[in-house]
Design a protein around this nucleic acid. Sequence first.
DNA 1: GAATTATCGACCAAATTATTCGAAAACTTT
DNA 2: AAAGTTTTCGAATAATTTGGTCGATAATTC
Lengths: 194, 194
Amino acid sequence: MVNKEEFRRKVILTAGQIFSRYGFRKTTMEEIATALKMGKSSIYYYFDSKEEIFEAIVRNEANILRNELTTAIKSVDSPVDKMKKYVFVRMKSFEKLANYYNAIFDKNLDHFDFIEQIREKYDREELAILRLILYHGSRKNVFSIVNSEYTALAIQTTLKGLEVPLFWKKREVNIESRLNAILDVLFNGILRKQ
Amino acid sequence: MVNKEEFRRKVILTAGQIFSRYGFRKTTMEEIATALKMGKSSIYYYFDSKEEIFEAIVRNEANILRNELTTAIKSVDSPVDKMKKYVFVRMKSFEKLANYYNAIFDKNLDHFDFIEQIREKYDREELAILRLILYHGSRKNVFSIVNSEYTALAIQTTLKGLEVPLFWKKREVNIESRLNAILDVLFNGILRKQ
DNA sequence: GAATTATCGACCAAATTATTCGAAAACTTT
DNA sequence: AAAGTTTTCGAATAATTTGGTCGATAATTC
């Protein structure tokens, strides 16, 4: 290995796949070790505990999601497109992250607070992004909103509502159509009638 | 519950889903019990052990497969269609059963012999069916075969070969196309040129 | 209301599993 | 090539999980 940090990333990637498939409890250190072609005790050279690995994974996955989102809204120009893109990509990428949230339910619920921290931070950042898009959109007169702060909160609430079926992992629920419906409602509501 | 047997079937169905998803080891009695909305000790009123449940599942699944196959070949008339149908349905339905075979690898390999028994019985029955189809086909002059016994064995061997990728569970393997290719080869080989 | 059938909580022994630790490789640096 | 550093691992341990038992207790049938 080139350095410690690089190997940590490798562990996070490998363990991430197994955790997201089997959940926290059903994934053993030995499985992770075997997938990494090492003895399980070697992993403890890089991580202090199974939980630390898991937490690193969630943090990592949250970062990936954040990056996906920022590049997504940079890829289009108009505030309307930015907002549409944001909502769409957010829900699509969130599916991966939802696996880990589910794994936490599988995990000891005592350690629930750490993910709440990550989530709070993420929510704050999201609000800022939404607010910015809305602000520019209202300046350019394509959004007819009174207060971008409140509207951003409303949209975020809707997005959180969309998450729920992802958690309950019912494969029958068609996220796509539900998402499109909400996008429609959202924009017919806030777009200035022309 | 109406009677004991009926509840056993319910357990088999429920546990079957969990076993096929997580394998033998990773499925706990408590999970099965929770899925059945009971205490885990209650299950022992119907089954003696975790293994007995598992074995009942495999037996049950093998029966379902057998039924699917016999109704499938009854649904068509000509020997050629019967043979095509048989090979096709056999491979399609086998996918479910393969999950349990995989679960056995996960299980203690000491108890491998019981599945061998089921498998042997199943193989014998299969050979009889194949032989019958071939026999009628050659009587009606649509199969150009010397000995329906040997040809049945050859076809069964091919089918077993098709199973292998199912065991190795690589989702990348496209069973369908492989299956069609083999159906083609099989029939261009044994169908009388006209 | 006795007898039978079904469920469950508490418990145990065995197995599994996360984690520790010292020592041995493997690799760097002097 | 010796001394130091980093990385890996086997064996042991401590904690947890889990299959299974048993007696008590509901629920149902007779």
